[in-house]
Design a protein around this nucleic acid. Structure first.
Length: 301
DNA sequence: ACTTTGACCTGTGCGC
DNA sequence: TGCGCACAGGTCAAAG
């Protein structure tokens, strides 16, 4: 589920549900996710009121009135289920799995992969579920955000300051294929495997093109790079727009592919016809950096 | 300094 | 039906 558009969709949902509400209880059902939970995380969250929910790259940053920030990354399979106060009894009735957390507290939820549970002053509950546990949860003081190891090396936000000139500067001297570069958080943030493939297809650029071939001798971006930067922005915006339309019930959505899948032009369409106007090519799958890349060899050069 | 590979996890879907 | 394997939206440390 989680590339920039999906994380942004989740951010909107959490913002609506959480801002202005106090966290009354936190239950952790294991020692950590990808990394151990920081010591005292529960103590920092409990009793604090959420003041805002931000996003940086694919990280969710939940600001608390205590001056602390709760960081949440969804990894590959993380998701939040939001349960409104009136739904809580129903969930309590249907959940039959273990109800005891790692630390022995009794909780009402607890599917095998429900690792964190948050209860709020208004009676709502949020459950973080993550089968693969590649997600991250952390807490730090807002003042220390600029020196957070997880955040400090991140490149530009694609929908904010990012320009073709910036992309050209970062692409200079890079010999790795452009698809790999798009996935590099230092080049631009938020683009994952799906949208990298989609943006390259929209731009008519082969994923295997060496990155530095998109920069002119004088350091300016080529026309192709200008187009790529524009198409990354476009595809992300289009996906956010669609995610937004399902926002009302996003908490109930099971988080896997789903809605934007209808809009994929190449991703996961191996052997299918290229959908670009006038192109009769066939979508191929190749492997780059151990990840699948989908492309139309006919219209991507 | 750059680039590639393997590791972290569990679940699912496929071929045999 | 069962088993083994390939693969899945991300990131980082280690090796090349």
């Amino acid at each position: 589920m989680p590339e920039l558009p999906e994380v942004e969709t989740v951010r909107c949902g959490l913002e609506q549900a959480w801002v202005g509400h106090r966290i009354t209880e936190v239950y952790l059902r294991r020692e950590g996710l990808r990394f151990p939970f920081p010591s005292g995380m529960t103590a920092h969250l409990k009793g604090a009121t959420v003041t805002s929910v931000r996003r940086r790259a694919k990280y969710l940053l939940i600001d608390l009135d205590s001056g602390m920030v709760f960081l949440s990354h969804l990894g590959m399979s993380g998701r939040y289920t939001l349960i409104t106060p009136d739904e809580v009894p129903k969930y309590l009735a249907t959940e039959v799995s273990s109800n005891v957390s790692t630390f022995g507290e009794l909780t009402g939820f607890g599917g095998r992969h429900d690792h964190m549970e948050f209860r709020f002053g208004n009676g709502s509950v949020a459950v973080y579920t993550d089968p693969r546990r590649f997600g991250i949860a952390d807490v730090f003081p807002r003042a220390e955000e600029p020196i957070q190891t997880l955040l400090e090396h991140l490149g530009p936000e694609p929908l904010e300051q990012w320009t073709a000139l910036d992309a050209a500067n970062r692409a200079k001297g890079k010999r790795s294929p452009i698809k790999t570069t798009l996935l590099d958080q230092r080049f631009v943030v938020g683009v994952g495997n799906i949208y990298a493939c989609e943006a390259l297809h929209r731009s008519g650029i082969s994923p295997t093109r060496p990155t530095n071939k998109l920069v002119r001798k004088d350091g300016k971006p080529t026309k192709a790079l200008v187009e790529l930067v524009a198409q990354v922005k476009e595809v992300l915006k289009a996906a956010i727009a669609v995610g937004g339309s399902t926002l009302n019930d996003f908490a109930a959505v099971d988080g896997t592919l789903g809605y934007f899948g209808h809009h994929f032009q190449v991703y996961d369409r191996e052997d299918g016809p290229c959908l670009k106007e006038g192109c009769n090519g066939t979508i191929e799958r190749i492997v780059q950096s151990n990840r699948s890349t989908f492309l139309c060899p006919r219209c991507q050069k």
